[in-house]
Amino acid sequence: MERVYGGSVPGSARSLEGRHYVITGGSRGLGATVVRSLLGEGARVSVCARREDGLDALNASVQQDGHPPLFTQALDVAEPTALEAFIDAAAAEHGGLHGAVACAGGASGRGLGAASADDWRRTWELNAGHAATLVSSAAPHLRAAGGGSIVVVSSISGWKPGPQAQYGSAKAAQIHMVASLARELGPDGIRVNAVSPGSMLIPGKRWDRMRREDPLAYQRFLDEFPARSLVAPEEVAEVVAFLLSERSRGISGANIPVDRAQNAPTPEGY
């Protein structure tokens, strides 16, 4: 029987106490889980996402749990000027910046014959483009702080082929990007790493709906996992928090899978 995860994964003490981090796509799903993980380690957090109501709901929820208010802004991360302004405003709000997480992502279009040039452009801008803007905008603030850590959330689709090609290639670009930028920014004390989640079981999302609506297909999908359990978002968030902290000071330019040894990234193969 599959183990279903919830709550937080045990971690170390409040190793991010007083530090400030920005997170894109942080209002729900993995992003919101990362926000809670960082707050749990004592960090101050700024979050952007597309929908203001989602940000408001997250802010209210974390304050109910006893955490300080988040600095939030609704924007499209694929718009470089808006993302740059958010990072500058967040740094000003909290008197500096110690790290950043590019968590927003997604895909447009379907297979090659059904995907338009705009689908490819949008997918690349949402993933590789937004991550590049995040790094370039955060870097001056991290230099001013004497260094810091950036985490780009990629995917196992970045090296395990699956549909659609525009998504996998954009995620592969993120993985190469962090390896290159880690070398470029290393002299400034800035580390850059990628985390590549496997298929995550998130309430209300694709795999949770499949589990409820098509249990036979879901059971077949579990064959892609040796332990027959999908990835929990808390497991990914703990790795992100680790990479942002000084516990990982020797790691830069790496791509760290959190996939439970998953084989194909989707039920469709390949």
Rank of each mutant, 00 (worst) to 15 (best):
R220M: 07
R36A: 07
A217N: 08
R36M: 02
R36G: 04
V240C: 10
D223T: 05
E268W: 04
V192Y: 02
A115C: 09
A100I: 09
S8A: 11
S229T: 14
S37V: 05
D259W: 04
G105Y: 10
S229C: 14
E234H: 09
W159V: 13
L55W: 14
L75N: 08
L216G: 05
A49G: 13
W159E: 11
I156C: 07
A165G: 00
S15V: 14
V35K: 06
S248Y: 06
L112I: 15
A91T: 12
G6M: 13
V4T: 05
S27D: 11
T24E: 10
S8N: 01
R44N: 12
P80R: 12
S157H: 13
G29C: 08
I251E: 13
R3N: 04
G105S: 09
S108R: 14
A139Q: 13
G25Q: 11
R122N: 15
G96A: 01
M210N: 10
E79Y: 09
V45Q: 03
E268K: 09
R50T: 11
A131S: 13
G158F: 00
V62P: 00
G40S: 14
G18D: 15
L185P: 03
R3P: 01
A102Q: 15
M1W: 00
S155R: 07
T266N: 13
Q64S: 14
L126H: 09
N263C: 03
S8K: 03
P197C: 01
S12F: 07
M1G: 06
A144Y: 13
A254C: 09
K205S: 06
N127H: 13
S180M: 00
G186C: 02
S196H: 08
A145R: 08
L222E: 01
H176Y: 04
S12H: 06
G29I: 06
R260W: 08
A114E: 14
R212E: 14
D214N: 14
G31I: 12
G158T: 01
Q166F: 03
Q63C: 13
S108M: 10
I251K: 09
P69G: 12
K160Y: 12
R206L: 02
T133E: 07
D259Q: 03
D65H: 12
V45L: 04
V35Q: 04
A82P: 08
R228V: 04
A145T: 03
E238F: 07
T72D: 06
A114V: 00
A49M: 09
G54P: 15
S180Q: 05
A165K: 00
P140D: 11
V35N: 09
G25W: 11
V178Q: 00
G158K: 00
A89T: 13
V62K: 10
R209F: 01
A145S: 13
D118H: 06
G109F: 08
Y167L: 06
S196W: 10
R50F: 15
A165F: 00
D76K: 04
T133S: 11
Q73D: 06
A92S: 13
